[in-house]
Design a protein around this nucleic acid. Structure first.
Length: 481
RNA sequence: GGCGACGUAGCCAAGUGGUAAGGCAUGGGUCUGCAAAACCCUGACCACCGGUUCGAAUCCGGUCGUCGCCUCCA
């Protein structure tokens, strides 16, 4: 079975085939860097991280571009949040941009989100944007008024094809207060004349100003991916007006299709409500990472399909954490057993389950990146693996290797929910591990002498330090929590 | 008002025509010095009404409810 992707453009699942065989060009709208990234951003970028990783796992070469918006993304009151923050902090706008851009990458690194191949900044691509705007003016799709340039939506009969929002002819040119200096209320800015207090400004053929938010993505996507590319992603809240306007600008300027597949990620709410500073339910990625390990956060946001909304709550994440722990126990058992396993294929009956898990996983991911179903395949495998490795029977190295590789490749490299190494993995020669092993040995001696008081004390005190012991038939194992 | 999404067991959630995956929680069991872990068993006829069909959670119409966007937002 081949990869199917739900294309928002057309609202149907379509067979995915890149323009150039084997090579995927992909653009995802990046963050506007004026504050710390929150778990809603985490959901979005983890989703595309998995898309990129699965495409690569499937053999595609992927060129992944994700921009950084550092200018032009105005709020509804017309202010630029970056400038606002800079004035408050008495620093330069680009200091603010740098600080939060770095923070964003730190967060993504911590979450195991692979960095894009190119992270272009809007402010570094002003010439490209100006050029594109000039093309739009020349072709009659844009007009200049008082140093600002607007896109005339009535010149693009396709405007609205992504969001299904068609321009209402009745509305066009109606009320002066909505329209302002624009020809139509729906027209959007390509370039804005800078008021004196607007400190982020550049020279342009229309005077000093700054670019509109939408043109940035169009210009950067064109520069790095060409006029037409394979996948464009973003949060569903960007569908209108941002993505719709990108399409209009690019297709009118380039006389070519823009992105062939559009993917939108569902929003994340916190305790049933939209995240907001004023609501006091704003959860940054840094906050979440203090509470949960990154793999758990990843598994949580992948517990629903990427296009669905999801609600973040401690109860929900905790439930996922328990399931994750069960899977990790199986992974640890496998890795530990592998270190001392005989070179046989004992226990190879489980290979059928391994193969089934791999097939189910692939089928699920091929069906529009169905991560909940793909995860279920690994969980079913986990049940089999736990049953086998707790049964006391000998399992050969080749069998254990097949299991370990399945976890590493599918759960690790693709979903990012299984770390490549674990503190308690066999072969860890660190001093801390050695000390823990020593204490376990002392406790084992106490247990052999049926000195339960002493053995329980050692276990309890280790637990207080975050080291959890489990007594198994073949010895005591440990893990950190 | 316009555009769109959703409503599946206590909770999360997959499933778009053929008698409901998976996870968490609950209860019972096995194992264990105890604990922990693990495994086994344990649960829903899919918001409601009507229609299409041999057959629908799945298609169509309607009702109720929740949410997103339309204005900055991933």
């Amino acid at each position: 079975m081949a990869l199917q992707i739900f294309n928002v453009l057309g609202r149907e699942k379509q067979l995915f085939q890149p323009i150039e065989p084997g090579f995927v060009r992909m653009y995802v709208c990046g963050l506007t860097v004026y504050d710390y990234a929150h778990i809603g951003h985490a959901k979005n970028y983890i989703a595309f991280d998995v898309v990129v990783k699965y495409l690569r796992h499937s053999g595609y070469n992927v060129l992944y571009v994700q921009n950084i918006t550092d200018v032009g993304h105005l709020r509804d009151d017309g202010t630029d949040p970056i400038i606002k923050k800079a004035l408050r902090a008495q620093s330069a706008p680009m200091q603010i941009v740098e600080m939060y851009a770095r923070s964003f990458f730190e967060d993504m690194d911590a979450l195991g989100v692979i960095r894009p191949d190119i992270s272009p900044r809007a402010s570094a691509h002003i010439p490209e944007q100006i050029k594109m705007i000039q093309t739009l003016i020349r072709k009659g799709h844009a007009y200049e008024v008082n140093g600002s340039v607007y896109f005339d939506v009535t010149t693009d009969p396709d405007y609205g094809k992504l969001s299904n929002r068609r321009i209402d002819a009745q509305q066009a040119g109606s009320r002066e207060e909505i329209r302002g200096e624009k020809r139509n209320p729906e027209d959007f800015a390509l370039w804005k004349n800078a008021e004196p207090e607007h400190i982020l400004r550049w020279d342009s053929p229309w005077g000093e100003g700054f670019p509109g938010w939408h043109i940035e993505c169009s210009a950067m996507a064109k520069k790095y991916l060409g006029d037409t590319f394979d996948i464009h992603g973003g949060g569903i809240d960007n569908m209108f007006p941002h993505n719709e306007s990108e399409i209009a600008q690019s297709e009118c300027a380039n006389d070519a299709d823009y992105a062939r597949f559009w993917m939108h990620v569902g929003s994340l709410t916190v305790d049933g409500m939209k995240m907001g500073k004023s609501l006091g339910n704003f959860v940054t990625i840094k906050d979440a990472l203090k509470r949960y390990r990154p793999e758990v956060i990843r598994m949580f946001v992948q517990s629903a399909h990427y296009s669905s909304p999801i609600d973040y709550s401690d109860d929900a994440v905790q439930g996922v954490a328990r399931g994750h722990e069960r899977m990790m126990n199986a992974v640890r058992l496998t890795r530990r057993a592998l270190a001392t396993a005989p070179q046989t294929d004992d226990g190879n009956a489980i290979l059928a389950a391994v193969e089934k898990a791999r097939a189910d996983f692939t089928a699920a991911m091929d069906d529009d990146f169905n991560t909940p179903l793909a995860t279920a395949a690994l969980q079913e495998l986990t049940r089999e693996v736990n049953a086998l490795l707790n049964s006391g029977t000998t399992v050969g190295a080749s069998v254990l290797k097949a299991i370990a590789e399945t976890y590493d490749q599918l759960g690790g490299a693709v979903l990012g929910i299984i770390p490549a190494t674990d503190d308690s993995a066999a072969g860890n020669a660190s001093r801390e591990a050695g000390l823990i092993e020593l204490l376990i040995k002392l406790r084992s001696e106490a247990r052999a002498a049926k000195n339960w008081k002493e053995s329980d004390r050692l276990r309890d005190e280790l637990a207080a330090l975050g080291v959890i012991l489990e007594d198994r038939a073949d010895g005591t194992v440990w893990k950190v929590n």
